[in-house]
Amino acid sequence: DEIHIHFNGVTIEFRGLTEEAKKALEEAIKRGASEEELKELARRLIK
């Protein structure tokens, strides 16, 4: 299970995320999180 985020022309790929983690990332994107914020969020979620 993986998710691809297209962000300002950059694709960020995450693997092994739970549904909750995906929802958290989607919410962050909707509120306009920066690419760095998304990566940091993903790091926290994957652990």
Rank of each mutant, 00 (worst) to 15 (best):
L17E: 02
T18E: 06
E13S: 14
E40D: 07
T18I: 05
E37Q: 05
E13I: 15
K47S: 15
E26K: 10
L25Y: 03
F7N: 04
K22P: 01
R15P: 14
H6I: 14
S34L: 04
E27Y: 08
A21S: 09
A24P: 01
A24E: 15
G16N: 10
T18G: 12
T11G: 05
G16I: 03
L41F: 03
G16L: 06
H4L: 13
K30L: 11
R31Q: 14
A42R: 02
A33C: 06
E20A: 09
T18A: 08
A28L: 06
L25G: 00
L17D: 01
G9A: 03
E19Q: 12
A24G: 03
A24S: 08
F7Q: 04
F14V: 08
E40M: 02
E37D: 06
T18H: 06
R43E: 15
K39N: 07
S34P: 04
R31V: 04
L17K: 01
I5F: 12
N8Y: 02
G32D: 02
H6P: 03
R15L: 13
E20L: 07
E36L: 06
E35M: 15
H6C: 06
N8G: 11
L45N: 01
A21L: 05
D1F: 15
G9R: 01
A42G: 02
G9P: 03
R31H: 09
A28H: 03
E2Y: 14
H6R: 04
K22I: 13
F14C: 09
K47W: 15
I3K: 03
S34M: 02
R43L: 14
E19R: 10
R44I: 14
L38M: 08
E2H: 14
L45Y: 11
I12C: 03
K23R: 11
V10Q: 11
K22S: 04
A33F: 06
L25T: 00
D1W: 14
A24I: 15
A24R: 07
E26F: 09
I12H: 07
E19A: 11
K30P: 00
L45C: 04
R15M: 08
V10P: 04
I29K: 06
V10I: 12
A24M: 14
V10M: 12
K30R: 12
L38P: 00
E19G: 12
E37H: 02
L45H: 01
H4N: 06
G16F: 09
L45S: 01
K22L: 12
A21T: 07
F7K: 03
V10Y: 07
A28Q: 02
E26Q: 09
E26H: 08
F7M: 12
K47V: 15
I3R: 05
E13D: 07
E26N: 09
E19H: 13
G9L: 02
I46D: 13
K22Q: 08
H4K: 12
R43P: 00
V10T: 12
A28D: 00
R15T: 13
G9C: 02
S34E: 05
V10R: 03
E37R: 01
F7L: 12
A28Y: 05
L38T: 00
R44D: 14
A24N: 03
K23Q: 10
R15I: 12
E13N: 05
L41P: 00
A42I: 15
G32L: 01
K30F: 11
A28V: 03
I5N: 02
E37N: 02
A21C: 03
S34C: 04
E26L: 13
L17C: 02
K39P: 00
E37M: 04
I3G: 05
I5A: 06
D1G: 09
L45M: 05
L38V: 13
K30Q: 10
E36A: 11
A33W: 08
D1Q: 12
E19P: 13
E26R: 07
I5H: 04
E19S: 12
L17T: 01
A21W: 09
I3T: 06
H4Y: 11
A33M: 10
L41H: 01
F7A: 05
L45A: 02
L45P: 01
K22A: 07
L17W: 06
I12M: 06
A24Y: 12
A28I: 03
F7C: 04
R15S: 14
K39V: 15
I3Q: 07
R15Q: 14
T11V: 12
F7T: 04
L38Q: 00
G16M: 04
L41N: 00
L45G: 01
I29N: 02
D1M: 14
E19K: 09
E35D: 10
E26Y: 13
G32N: 03
K39E: 08
T11S: 10
N8S: 06
R31F: 09
A28S: 03
R15A: 10
K30Y: 10
R15H: 13
I3M: 10
E37I: 02
L41I: 11
N8C: 05
E2N: 10
I29C: 04
R44C: 09
E2I: 15
V10E: 08
R43Y: 14
A21Q: 09
R31P: 00
L25D: 00
T11P: 03
N8D: 12
I5D: 03
K23M: 11
I3H: 09
E35V: 14
T11Y: 10
A42W: 15
F14R: 00
L41W: 01
E35T: 11
L17A: 06
L17F: 12
R44N: 13
E19M: 12
L25S: 00
E37L: 02
E37T: 03
A28K: 01
E2W: 14
I12P: 03
R15W: 12
A21V: 14
G9Q: 04
I46W: 05
E2Q: 13
I3Y: 13
E13V: 15
E2K: 14
R44S: 12
E35A: 14
R44P: 00
R31E: 08
E40K: 02
K23V: 11
E19W: 11
I29W: 14
A42Q: 03
R15G: 09
I3E: 05
T11M: 09
V10A: 08
H6N: 12
E27N: 07
R43A: 14
H6D: 10
I29R: 06
I12Y: 08
E40Y: 02
E27F: 08
R44Q: 15
G16E: 10
R15V: 13
E35S: 08
S34Q: 04
K30W: 12
I46Q: 07
A42F: 15
T11K: 07
G9I: 02
A42Y: 15
E13C: 09
A21N: 09
F14M: 06
E35Q: 08
H4G: 06
D1N: 13
E36Y: 06
E2T: 15
R31K: 12
G32T: 01
F14P: 00
E40W: 03
H4M: 10
F7S: 05
I3L: 11
R43S: 09
